[in-house]
Structure formats: C-alpha cells, structure tokens
C-alpha cells in the first residue's frame, strides 16, 4: 500500500477510509477507535453537567418535567415543560422583562456544556455588553429541549432569548453546542421564528467567534423587533 497515496485521499475527507482489513473485518485499532468515539457520544447523552461549573457562573438550576433520562429521550414534549418547582424558582429569582434572557441547558449532550461553557459564556456576556444590551438573571435547565424557551418566555417576558444547549452527539464530536435565539419567546411560537448557530466547539465554530456572532444577531433582533425568517441579516 502506497502510504502517501492513501494520505492524499484521506486529507480530503474526515471519513474513516484507508483502514484496511483482516479477512473481511476491520483491524483491531480502527475497530476500537470507532467504539471509543461511540462511547464518548453515549456518555455525553447520559452525562451530567458539572455543578462546580454552574456555581462558577452563579447559575441556579431548574428542571423540566422529564423525570428520568429514559423519559427525556422518549418524550421530547416533557423537556419543553418546566416543573412546578422550576417555575416557582424562576419567578422568585429572576429579573422580569429583561432585554435578553440567557439560559443554559444540557439537552442531548452534557459534555457540550462541560467543554464549552467556560469559553462561550464570558465571551457572550462581553459581546452583549459591547452592544449595551442588558442581560436578565441567567440559569440552568436540566432536561431541556429547544422549545423550553417558550415556557420560560411566558414567565419572564424577555425581549430576546438565548438558549445554549447541547446537540445530539456525533462520532466526530460529542460535545458540540448550539445557540438558539428568538425575539419575544412565548407559547405557540413557530419554529421558523427561531434562529440557531450550531456546531460550536473548538474544532467547529470557535466559541469566541460564536459568542460575537450571537451578540450581533441579538442586537439585530432588538433593532428590528423580529427573529427567524423575517429578520434581515
């Protein structure tokens, strides 16, 4: 096998090519490396966000109605509804009618928060303060789905909303983060009103760059009083 030729092919794709075989089966190293990446992805789904990390940013935690991880995976609708205790805690602790509300949620990858929050969150606060946008009281939602922003919107009535949430993990990256944004979140909101910056991690959209981009978009939402397909960007 001509190695430089193989390298020539491999440089064009992240696909696992040129791995060879024994009989019709893959070689041990490649086979185990595939299983390791799958293990990381599964652990990201079933993992927990570090409580020290949440404390560091002074984020209190509330839960949705998901109950168990199994139920969370089977019933996306339950991850869109806050628990009664969660609603209460949000009502007690958060500033009403903020210009922008930031919420962090594990979603389908706790690793996405653990790996990226340290980079994304301070940069995001900087980016928003650059536009002189006032931020409400941020908090963490355990077992959240994207549309939990609507339920939170009903309680706090923010003008704009930023949800940093873990994406469904892939084998290439198990800790990719998404930022979902919208103007005036409320129940019955259309999916087309939401905006997203996805693939946020060090080897994807770099966290600092993503934070700057989110700031710009939210500023436009506030200026145009709109989000999603009707926002002119």
């Amino acid at each position: 096998m001509e190695n430089h030729q193989l390298e020539g092919l491999r440089k064009f794709t992240p696909a696992r090519i040129g791995v060879g075989r024994t009989g019709t089966r893959p070689l041990t190293k490649d086979f185990l490396s595939f299983r390791i990446d799958h293990a990381a992805a599964v652990d990201a789904v079933y993992g927990e966000v570090s409580s020290e990390l949440l404390q560091e940013f002074n984020l209190f935690a509330v839960e949705t109605c998901y109950g168990t991880k199994e139920e969370y995976l089977k019933r996306p609708d339950k991850g869109r509804v806050l628990s009664v205790e969660g609603e209460q805690l949000i009502s007690e602790r958060c500033v009403r009618n903020p210009q922008v509300q930031i919420v962090i949620s594990d979603g389908l990858s706790a690793s996405a928060i653990n790996e990226n929050l340290l980079d994304v969150y301070p940069a995001l606060l900087d980016s928003l303060s650059l536009y002189q946008i006032e931020v409400g009281t941020p908090f963490f939602v355990k077992g959240g789905r994207v549309a939990c922003m609507d339920a939170i919107g009903e309680i706090l009535n923010p003008e704009a909303f930023i949800l940093l949430i873990g994406e469904r993990p892939g084998l290439v990256c198990a800790h990719s983060l998404s930022a979902y944004m919208c103007y005036r979140p409320r129940k019955g909101m259309k999916e087309s009103e939401r905006m997203v910056i996805s693939n946020i991690h060090r080897r994807g959209t770099p966290p600092i760059e993503a934070a700057a981009h989110i700031g710009t978009l939210v500023n436009k939402m506030l200026e145009q009083k709109a989000s999603g397909v009707s926002l002119v960007v």
Binding site: T13, P14, A15, R16, I17, V19, R21, T24, R25, P26, D30, F34, D37, H38, R168, G170, L171, V172
Partner: peptide
C-alpha cells in the same frame, strides 16, 4: 455502507463496508 459505519455528514451509524 459507509466508511467504518460512521457517516461523517449525517452523524449516525450504519453498516461498515467491512
């Protein structure tokens, strides 16, 4: 079939060519 069962675009696993 996809290389080593890992579809690097759709982010799911199918069968390997092997």
């Amino acid at each position: 079939g996809v290389p080593m069962a890992d579809d690097c675009m759709l982010n799911y696993q199918s069968l390997s060519y092997h």
